[in-house]
Simulated assay, not measured.
Amino acid sequence: MIAIVNYGVGNLKSIKKAVEKFDRAVVTRDAEEIKAADGIILPGVGAFPAAIKNLTDLKDVIVKAKVPVLGICLGMQLFAEVSEEGGINEGLKIIRGRVVKFPESVGKIPHMGWNVVKNEDHEIFEGIKDQYFYFVHSYYFKAEEGIIATTDYGIEFPSAVAKNNFIGVQFHPEKSGKVGLKLIENFVEICKQNP
């Protein structure tokens, strides 16, 4: 069973529907239910300050999780040490780096639409190589470690990160068609293989 953490940010139904093609899923903010899950998904659409505030009571559960954790878009950004969105806000401090706004030189902000994710070999990308995924974001995680994919949008930025049992993707697999479903399937497989 995969726990999709409900902390007041969107796409819960579409993520649940995608996961349910491969495993049972529950949308929850119950700490015991999250602890009992085989994997955890931190979805994300919205602003970092509100999201991290809404996660206050679940912060320890997420950070201390022993099962695979997938952060999607804002969910990935929450792995950072700090975010510059809406001032300086502390993140979950799982992966070194900070969340910063795209410079105006990139052109249109937010970065919205399909873009190529150039990925390294990692189990989350099993059967996927340099494919188009769907993005919607004005800020990106300028990670200092664990970068497993990059995307070019005027500047090259990390579009996927991984460290220990934490995996983050800046794009939305649940909105990325067949290739996105393959990534969700890969995450479910990672969860099933987790001892």
Score class of each variant (00 low, 15 high):
Asn115Met: 09
Met76Pro: 00
Arg29Asn: 14
Met112Thr: 09
Pro103Ile: 07
Asn194Gln: 15
Gly39Gln: 14
Glu20Lys: 11
Asn164Phe: 10
Gly113Gln: 09
Lys182Ile: 08
Asn186Leu: 03
Pro195Asn: 15
Lys59Ile: 05
Thr28Gln: 02
Gly146Val: 08
His172Asn: 03
Gly113Thr: 05
Tyr132Val: 10
Tyr7Cys: 03
Val45Ala: 13
Val100Glu: 08
Lys35Pro: 03
Val161Pro: 04
Lys178Pro: 09
Glu156Tyr: 09
Ala37Glu: 13
Gly180Phe: 02
Ile72His: 00
Arg98Tyr: 03
Ile190Gly: 07
Lys163Phe: 05
Lys35Asn: 09
His122Pro: 04
Thr28Arg: 01
Val179Ile: 11
Ala162Ser: 15
Glu156Ala: 11
Ile4Cys: 11
Pro158Asp: 06
Tyr140Ser: 06
Ala143Trp: 05
Gln193Val: 08
Phe171Asn: 01
Glu90Ala: 14
Val63Leu: 06
Cys73Lys: 00
Tyr132Met: 12
Lys16Met: 10
Gly154Trp: 10
Ala51Asp: 08
Val26Met: 09
Lys178Ser: 14
Val169Leu: 04
Gly177Met: 06
Phe141His: 03
Val45Gln: 13
Ile190Gln: 11
Glu145Arg: 13
Ile41Pro: 00
Val117Glu: 02
Asp130Arg: 11
Ala18Asp: 01
Val99Glu: 00
Glu81Tyr: 11
Pro49Asp: 05
Ser159Met: 07
Ala65Gln: 14
Val169Trp: 03
Lys53Asn: 12
Glu185Asn: 11
His137Ala: 04
Phe187Gln: 06
Phe102Asn: 09
Gly107Arg: 13
Ile94Gln: 01
His172Ala: 02
Ile88Gly: 12
Arg96Pro: 05
Lys129Asp: 06
Arg96Asn: 15
Ile34Gly: 02
Val179Tyr: 09
Thr151His: 04
Ser176Gly: 06
Ala36Tyr: 12
Pro49Tyr: 00
Lys93Val: 15
Val117Cys: 06
Ile52Pro: 02
Lys17Phe: 05
Glu20Phe: 07
Tyr7Glu: 03
